[in-house]
Design a protein around this nucleic acid. Structure first.
Lengths: 223, 223
DNA sequence: GAAAATTTATGATTTACCTCAAATTTAGGT
DNA sequence: ACCTAAATTTGAGGTAAATCATAAATTTTC
C-alpha cells in the first residue's frame, strides 16, 4: 500500500520523512469513479485534496445552467489545491471524464506538510503557479480569440498536454468542448466539421487525428 | 529604513527572523513610478518580485494590439508572485495607474524565504489561492456574462475591493475599463452612460458614485 | 433488445456586440 | 496660453456567434 502511494505520488512526496509519509497513508482513502460521476461540487466542503492517479477529470464552474470547464486534469496532479486556506469551500466542481482512480487526502494533512516540509511547500507553489499560467492562457483564448482560434487551442491542448499524441480518443463530448471554449455546442460542432473538411484534423466521432499543427497554430495565433 | 519596510510589509514579514529581515533589506530597492509608467513587461525577466506600498497598478496581458487587464493591484500586495519558478519570465505586463511606490525584492530572496520560513510559504500560498479565486471570478464574468453584467462587476470590484467606498475617483480610463471587461471602448462608454441615465451610478468623468448596489448585483447575477 | 435519453448535426433567424467614422472634450507638453 | 495628442462621445452599419427548431444518430437504461 505504501509502495503504491509512493509510486503514484513519487514526484510530490520523494522528500518526505517516514513519519510524514505515514501521516498521509493513515489519512487518505483510495476511490474509484466511473465516467460521468461527480467528485466534488462547487460550494461543497473542501475537506480533502484529491490526487489523480488514473483517468481524466474535468473541473468546471457552474453559472446559470451553463458550465465553463476551467481545466482538464490528468494523472499526477492534485485537484482542490486552490481551495486550501480558502474558506474550506470548493469554488468549482469536478467530474470524471473517464473512469478514474484517486487518492483523497485530508486537506489538514496537506497543510501540515506545507508547514513542515519546505520542499513540499515549494512544489505546491510551483504547481499553483503553473496552473495560474495556464489560466492566463485560457483567459486570453476565451476572451480575445474567436471561435476558430478557441477550437484550435483546445485541440492543441488535448494533443500536446493531455494525450501527448497526434491521434487520440478525446473522450470529451461536443458539449464538453463547447463548455471548455465558452461557446454554444452548435458552434463547436460546426467548427470541428469545418476543420475536418479543411483537412486540418481528421475527426470520426470522438476520435481525432491532427493533420496540421502548423495550421492549428496559425489559427490560434490570429485568434 | 528597516522600520519603514517592516511597517509596509507588516502582515507578510512579521514572523521573519532578524537575519531574514536583513536579507530582504539588503536585496531590495525602493522605486517610485509615475502614472502611466511601466513596471514590467510581458516576456521580460522576472528577476524581482514587486511589493506595492502606495498607489495602484494594473497587470495586463498583451495580445495582437489588444490588452486584457487581469487584475488591479492595490497596496499591500505582491506583483510577480506567479512568475516564481516559472522560467523566470513575466507572463504579464504591469503599469502604474496612479503614482506608486514599490519595493523591488530579488526573486531569489523570496524563494529563500519560502524555503526557510514555513509561515511565509503558507502566506504566499494563501495569497496565490486568493488570486486564483479572483481569476476564476474574472473568467466567469468575462466569458459568461454580457456587457451589462461585466460593467456591473467592475464597478462592484472598484467600489468594494479597490476603493472601499461608494464614491471614488476611479483613475482608470474608459479604455482601461473596456480592457478589464474584454469589450470595445465604445461599448464600455455606452453602458456607463446607460447606468448613469438609469440612476444606477452617478458618473462625472472619472468620478463615480454608486447609487444602487442592489441593481448592480442584480445585473451581475443575470449576466 | 426495445425504449428513452442524450449526443450530434444542420439550416434559418435573431441579436449582441464590434468596427468604422467623425465630432467634441480633456489632458499634456513647450 | 497655445498647440498637439489622447480620451470621450455618438451614430450607422456590419457581422460573428447565439438561439431556435428539428431530425438523425448514438448511447444508456431497464
Amino acid at each position: 500500500m505504501i509502495q503504491q502511494i509512493q509510486k503514484d505520488f513519487a514526484p510530490w512526496f520523494d522528500k518526505l520523512s517516514e513519519e510524514q509519509l505515514l501521516k498521509i497513508v493513515e489519512n487518505q482513502v483510495s476511490l474509484n469513479y466511473n465516467k460521468g460521476e461527480i467528485l466534488s461540487k462547487q460550494g461543497g466542503f473542501a475537506s480533502h485534496i484529491i490526487f489523480l492517479s488514473e483517468g481524466l477529470i474535468k473541473i468546471y464552474k457552474e453559472h446559470n445552467d451553463k458550465n465553463l470547464i476551467l481545466k482538464i486534469v490528468k494523472p499526477g496532479e492534485f485537484i482542490g489545491l486552490s481551495s486550501l486556506y480558502n474558506k474550506g469551500i470548493f469554488d468549482y466542481s469536478a467530474a470524471s471524464i473517464d473512469s478514474s482512480k484517486v487518492y483523497s487526502v485530508q486537506a489538514e494533512i496537506v497543510k501540515y506538510l506545507i508547514r513542515n516540509n519546505s520542499d513540499f511547500a515549494e512544489k505546491i507553489i510551483r504547481q499553483l503557479n503553473q496552473n495560474t499560467s495556464q489560466y492566463f492562457e485560457r483567459i486570453m483564448s476565451l476572451t480575445q480569440k474567436q471561435l476558430h482560434g478557441r477550437i484550435a487551442d483546445v485541440i492543441l491542448l488535448l494533443s500536446r498536454e493531455i494525450y501527448e499524441s497526434d491521434t487520440f480518443n478525446m473522450l470529451l463530448t461536443r458539449r464538453d468542448l463547447a463548455d471548455f471554449c465558452g461557446m454554444s455546442t452548435e458552434s463547436a460542432i460546426r467548427i470541428l466539421k469545418e476543420f475536418h473538411n479543411d483537412r486540418i484534423v481528421n475527426i470520426d466521432g470522438k476520435n481525432m487525428h491532427v493533420i496540421s499543427y502548423q495550421l492549428l497554430e496559425r489559427l490560434s495565433e490570429v485568434g
